[in-house]
């Protein structure tokens, strides 16, 4: 099992075998997490720092749990409350961190490319926990693992990603990952929420949701941010729900065994009907959360192996 990267900044630089390496190891960690004693020493002695420059509950908790289960010393910093308010630049923050000798750095930032910038300046392995509208690689990986376990494969599937594609890093990472693994990706949403020239990414774009969901294996819903519902991008919440909310009628156009996914947190009654979200035969939303911890354990484990394989003077 080999993993070619020293950071996990996005799906873009990963090869299909990198992706498979993470997913295969994550499968093992799913088993570990279901045992009574959920502990391994893969990261023992290493320090993991979570830096979230943007609010997050789930992703931060998931990374924290993943690090702790692997025996790392984990510290979480809520950056929006601290030095960034005092005018410290990202580069200064990186220099400060270097002095603390972390081994794994998990970063979320509201601006695209900010995690790449930080990764150039720190000496440890960096994991992107979401940067602006750019990428959210661990979300795409946990989605991939969920699909692979539910469908038995991660290729030649037809997958619809629905909703606010334009502002979504989850959508970008998923488009890249599912494309690399040779799936057919459809994007469904109003044109005001589609990035420009998105059709050049090798995807099919649908404005009509029923048409977009026809015969798909996977329906992946995206969260619609509250601040985008007030007439700027879509006329209103209720019109959005009518045209793009996932309900039983729209879902009936997908394959009978199609699964329903959502990265959370959900807006019930905005992008998804509550009953569908809770339907244990269709919804894999709870599994996604479970896979999230396992995928993050796998990613950090693989990065730590590469870190330990580096020559000592580089580590110092």
């Amino acid at each position: 099992m080999s993993f070619s990267q020293s950071h996990l900044l996005g799906i873009e630089p990963l090869s299909p075998s990198d992706i498979t390496a993470i997913l295969d190891l994550a499968d093992q960690y799913v088993d570990l997490n279901r045992r009574e004693v959920k502990h391994s020493d893969a990261l023992a002695g290493l320090t993991q720092i979570n830096m979230f420059f943007e609010n997050s509950t789930r992703t931060q908790a998931s990374f924290e749990l993943a690090g702790k289960r692997l025996g790392a010393d984990v510290m979480s910093m809520a950056m929006q409350a601290s030095s960034i308010k005092k005018g410290e630049t990202l580069i200064d923050t990186a220099l400060t961190l270097n002095a603390m000798h972390p081994d794994l750095l998990v970063v979320r930032h509201p601006h695209s490319g900010a995690v790449d910038l930080l990764a150039q300046k720190v000496k440890c392995a960096v994991l992107n926990a979401g940067d602006g509208r750019h990428e959210h690689p661990t979300q795409a990986l946990l989605d991939a693992l969920t699909i692979r376990r539910a469908k038995g494969r991660l290729h030649r599937l037809s997958i619809a990603i629905c909703g606010d594609i334009a502002h979504s890093r989850v959508a970008r990472s998923n488009i890249l990952l599912l494309g690399k693994m040779e799936n057919r990706v459809r994007l469904v949403g109003p044109p005001t929420l589609m990035p420009s020239q998105i059709s050049e990414f090798g995807v099919e774009v649908f404005e009509d949701m029923r048409e977009g969901l026809r015969d798909v294996d996977v329906v992946m819903m995206l969260r619609l941010q509250r601040e985008r519902m007030d007439g700027g991008f879509i006329p209103s919440e209720r019109e959005y729900y009518h045209r793009y909310g996932l309900d039983a009628d729209k879902l009936s156009h997908a394959k009978p065994d199609a699964i329903v996914m959502h990265p959370g947190p959900m807006n019930r009654g905005v992008e998804i009907d509550g009953e569908i979200a809770d339907d244990i035969n269709r919804s894999v939303i709870q599994e996604q959360v479970e896979m999230g911890v396992a995928v993050r354990m796998a990613a950090m484990d693989l990065l730590a192996r590469n870190l330990r394989a580096r020559p000592k003077e580089v580590l110092a």
Binding site: E12, S112, G113, D131, G132, R133, H134, E135, R169, R172, P195, S196, Q197, I198, E200, F201
Partner: peptide
């Protein structure tokens, strides 16, 4: 705006 900006997630 265009393919590049969409890929990089830049406004």
């Amino acid at each position: 705006s265009g393919k590049f900006a969409s890929l990089r997630g830049l406004p």
